[in-house]
Design a protein around this nucleic acid. Sequence first.
DNA 1: CTGTTAGCGCATTCAT
DNA 2: ATGAATGCGCTAACAG
Lengths: 335, 335
Amino acid sequence: METDHRKNSYPTIKDIAKLSNVGIATVSRVINNSGKVSESTKKRVLEVIEETGYSPNLNARSLSSKKSYSLSYVVPDMGNSFYGIIYSSLESTLIKSNYRTIVFPLINDFDLQKIKQKTDLIYQTDGVFLTSLSVSKIFRSKIPHKKIILIDTADSRFDSVYIDNYKVGQMAGEYLLKNSRPDSLFYLVTFKELENEFTSNVFSKRDKGFTDFMKSHGKNVKITYADLMWNGGYEAMKKSLKRKTGNYISVFSACDMLGLGVKMFMDKKGLVPKKDYSLISVDDLPQGEMSGLSTIKQPIENFGKIAAEMFVSYSEGRKNLIHKELKCKLIERET
Amino acid sequence: METDHRKNSYPTIKDIAKLSNVGIATVSRVINNSGKVSESTKKRVLEVIEETGYSPNLNARSLSSKKSYSLSYVVPDMGNSFYGIIYSSLESTLIKSNYRTIVFPLINDFDLQKIKQKTDLIYQTDGVFLTSLSVSKIFRSKIPHKKIILIDTADSRFDSVYIDNYKVGQMAGEYLLKNSRPDSLFYLVTFKELENEFTSNVFSKRDKGFTDFMKSHGKNVKITYADLMWNGGYEAMKKSLKRKTGNYISVFSACDMLGLGVKMFMDKKGLVPKKDYSLISVDDLPQGEMSGLSTIKQPIENFGKIAAEMFVSYSEGRKNLIHKELKCKLIERET
DNA sequence: CTGTTAGCGCATTCAT
DNA sequence: ATGAATGCGCTAACAG
């Protein structure tokens, strides 16, 4: 039997009801697996649904039930596997609860404009995961009735999973100091965060932790800002080392993506890890391991897993806020 | 004046109408900037909206108007700036039409499951941009009434913007042959695409174009498959060059991301471009330029721009299909 | 210019 | 177990 509606549009629940000689309530029950439906009618309805290719209209469903079963995952970058890993771990724990996670990159002015309008799609989802982004000034007085969960950022007003980035900078400092020589020169390769209402200051905290530590040990630090790309670190290091001094080189690059570039440059210059230089970065992306990059490992998968669990517990009734600081671990490899 | 509804939920259009002493139709007109509304009442309504923090329910709006004003952008990867660039160019031309583009990564089994259900959120948007992905077997007989536009893939059944990847492989072959020596050994570093219904075979086409070309010139090619990461190319090249032969090395890496890794390896080995080896890849990502990578430039921004224009013209009534092949350009740099 | 009304497709009482 | 009726919040005729 073919669909017999010439409206050139999808069949609705009403069509299905009519075709299977039941009420729409019954159809609703079978597609939602709720309430009691006899096996026989259920089977019949399911057949009709299959034949017609029916699928429920999500807008109508959300309007009626006041839930969208979708979640927003807001990220500041599309070219960094860091956010891909978190996305996957979010999904893998959210899939059970049948939520759909959609990604909203916040990488240019258009995005910024959009997200600031309260009519934005983001606010139609049941919850928002904000990653490496701050919400300080976005909502001002009126915080939307949405669950907001921060990943890789801390804010007392929202659930958040994060690490202590200041401490990360200190750890890097310790490592570099331990591996330094009397003639060591210290470098910081980092990313200059844009100054808008979304900056989470992840980098500037790492920077401060590092420079404070070095200063307290009487060491000077040369800071270079890099583009947040695979070889932004490469260019930055090239700039930093214009004149070769012969000194031992100790560098802290604020993330693996930058660190890889730095290492690329060192390799090119024929400098040997631990002999000519030390290098430590942050993240522990798969790419870093291959290059022998020493790094301060972030619990990336856990960011996603825990954030997802936070949402689940919230949707099950939790009222209090949760702030969870995750531990980082120094991983020493070649550099 | 404060909102006077204790329902702990958002005010609706009805609330606004009541508070401003107008009908809901009038409110609808002002928030949509449609129809005629006197300046005075418009002003009053706007004030109430501001006071109450009202914002329209998108589900209700979509249900009623049968348009969502949202578009899906489906990508196979979240760690590749290629897709970020396209996203930005999509947005920059779509912003005028007030569409919201949301990203759906298709990177794991959960995603695949989701997208195969016709109830998926994707099918609630007004259109779908599928990037570097094929739709051959997804929809079988029943193609959804959604506009589908392919980016970086060609399919006669859908609008598509793409390049001739077979030709790209040939171009790479020509370049390498031109720069080769009698003793040259030829390498191909590429990515082995998963065999599911989404593979667009971008890589296998480049591979074939290249190997066919080399074969027709009596050259042998050693193929190595790499992970699609920054330094997947690095590992692949390391594997390929286990025993050093002293021969001139000519390598085609199927994309810049891989090419960067290859170059990293060459640098590390102290091999000099054009003296010890030639290397060409595909894309022309910003990162490649910094590394002096010779490459076959894809018109990445144009992918997004043209795809977006395709959607706009479609939404304005276009009926025919458009298939647009973009030209690539060889960019010779150090390698 | 403005208000009334009829759906949009579905979930959900409330009867039966 | 099942159907009829109500409403979710909004847009789009239609009247005035």
